[in-house]
């Protein structure tokens, strides 16, 4: 069984997937070189790969990336500071929770990002607009998951707390919040994914900040290889972020 689990056949689909990706890139390169695709619209993949050095050197890709990371970090801090207490409050006051839970779910699926021109008027073309858009997008999942986590605390843990005659505040901080942590982390992760999507998107739309602005800049300068390379970079960063937080979430669940 074990030998079968680690046999090379296990990696065959992944290798095939990589092979398909490589083939697709090679086909595009071939079509471009043969003149069947327009090089003014699609740059050569080799040119795109080659432009990374220039992007890091001249366009300060790393600094742009750090700007986006910084905005995301601020958004995450504000998210945690608002989302977890609001979720806890709603859990503690069931009437309020019942009254607002459907509203929050509706908000989670509403096209909130389209409100960015409104915040553009209120905060101007600044990092504040970007961060606020990130926070607004991330809040609903975090609040809902905080409520879910607190509601799912095992009865035996609560009984232990009661037998120690814990006060309501102690019960919350010593028993319920630690027990709800894995679920709250799921909410934070979801919120952060939504926030990151909005942050990069709004950066691009309002032409301000980190990676999103760089894409807009390069598009306006008609630097096709640079623009494609930055888009690839953003995709890689998003995928890496998604992958790492997913692993972290699984690890936390196992620990719990």
């Amino acid at each position: 069984m074990r030998a079968a689990a680690i046999s090379p056949a296990r990696f065959l689909p992944a290798l095939f997937g990589l092979f398909c990706l490589f083939c697709a890139v090679a086909v595009v390169e071939g079509l471009l070189r043969a003149g069947l695709l327009n090089r003014f619209i699609v740059p050569l993949p080799t040119e795109v790969a080659g432009s990374f050095g220039r992007l890091f050197g001249e366009e300060h890709l790393l600094a742009r990336f750090l700007t986006t990371v910084q905005e995301t970090f601020y958004a995450m801090a504000i998210l945690a500071l608002i989302g977890v207490p609001v979720g806890t409050l709603l859990y503690q006051v069931p009437v309020l929770r019942k009254a607002t839970e459907t509203w929050i779910s509706a908000l989670a699926s509403a096209p909130i990002v389209l409100m960015y021109p409104l915040f553009l008027v209120i905060f101007g073309r600044s990092a504040a607009t970007i961060i606020v858009m990130g926070v607004i997008a991330g809040l609903p999942p975090l609040i809902l998951k905080t409520i879910e986590g607190l509601s799912g605390t095992r009865q035996s843990l609560i009984n232990v707390g009661r037998s120690f005659r814990l006060t309501r505040a102690q019960m919350l901080t010593k028993i319920m919040l630690p027990a709800a942590l894995p679920t709250i982390f799921v909410g934070l992760r979801l919120g952060l994914i939504f926030a990151l999507i909005n942050i990069v998107g709004v950066e691009f739309l309002i032409n301000f900040g980190g990676l999103g602005q760089l894409i807009n800049d390069l598009a306006e300068r008609y630097d096709m290889p640079g623009m494609y390379a930055t888009i690839v970079f953003v995709i890689l960063v998003s995928v890496l972020f998604f992958f790492v937080t997913e692993r972290l979430e699984r690890w936390l669940r196992r620990m719990a």
């Binding site: 992944a14 997937g17 999103g212 894409i215 807009n216 888009i231 953003v234 998003s238 992958f243």
Partner: peptide, 29 residues
């Protein structure tokens, strides 16, 4: 099962990326 395991991770991980950044490409195309 084979195609799913080979190619679905790409869709799964590309799903939560900010799609609006593709807009300059869409304008070109």
């Amino acid at each position: 099962r084979f195609f799913g395991r080979a190619l679905e991770p790409y869709i799964y991980y590309l799903g939560p990326t900010p799609k609006i950044i593709f807009f300059p490409i869409m304008i070109m195309w």
